[in-house]
Amino acid sequence: MITLLAVERIKLATTQAAWWCTAIAVVASLGFAALFVGFAGDDFALTVGSSQAGATFGRTVLLVLGVLVVTTEYHWGTARTTFQAVPSRAPVLLAKATVVGILAAVVGLAVGFGSLGLAMLLEPGAELALDGAADWRAVAGQGPVYLLTAVLGVGIGLLLRNTALGLAVALVWTQLVEGLVVLIPTIGDDIYVWLPFFAASQFVGSDVGSPALGLGELPLGPLGYGAYFAGICLLLLAAGVWTAVRRDA
């Protein structure tokens, strides 16, 4: 397994996609956070949670990276070379998910703490100390959320194998479906509270960006939602790996 992790680390580090995505995720997230904090003014109470306003953006970029690391391998044929080298397939695919996940976690932590640091710099007067579990989750929680999101991308990539299709599905799902579901009368809210990225947002506790809704009592607490989100991401990864092992390469 150490060997395979090294293989996937070499693969990831020797193409540009990872560097581009990392750079875009960090710069765009922090840039948006800076705009948000910078224009907040006095009438807006800046908190640890709202300092993370830009984090969903970087999360989406890591989702894209997760899809790309798989679909480009299928596109360029290196997936076949990989399966030639490791014919049982599953270990090397799990190694890939692990490596991309670790990178994503690092980016997530950088975005989380970077956003907080930025907020402290721009608004030295605001109450931005990390007090209690909720504050820590809001900032350090970006690590696991980014990790799982990238893993989800890997799963989608393995299932769909095509770059355009994989990206379209991943982005339409995360950016469109979850926002539109609330428009469904009566049952929309009930579905919404079980959607994966709503769950991720509940875990980090960032309510910026999700529509202010009277959702009433939520079915899970933040940690429950975290576990639920993790479950969905890992399930998709498992489905992806399972299909890739069975299918002709």
């Binding site: 070499i10 693969k11 020797t14 193409t15 391998e73 360029w76 044929g77 290196t78």
Partner: peptide, 16 residues
């Protein structure tokens, strides 16, 4: 043609 166009020849062989 089974290689990533953005990867160098040496790195291609390295991971294999």
């Amino acid at each position: 043609a089974w290689r990533h166009p953005g990867r160098s020849a040496r790195n291609h062989l390295r991971w294999i």
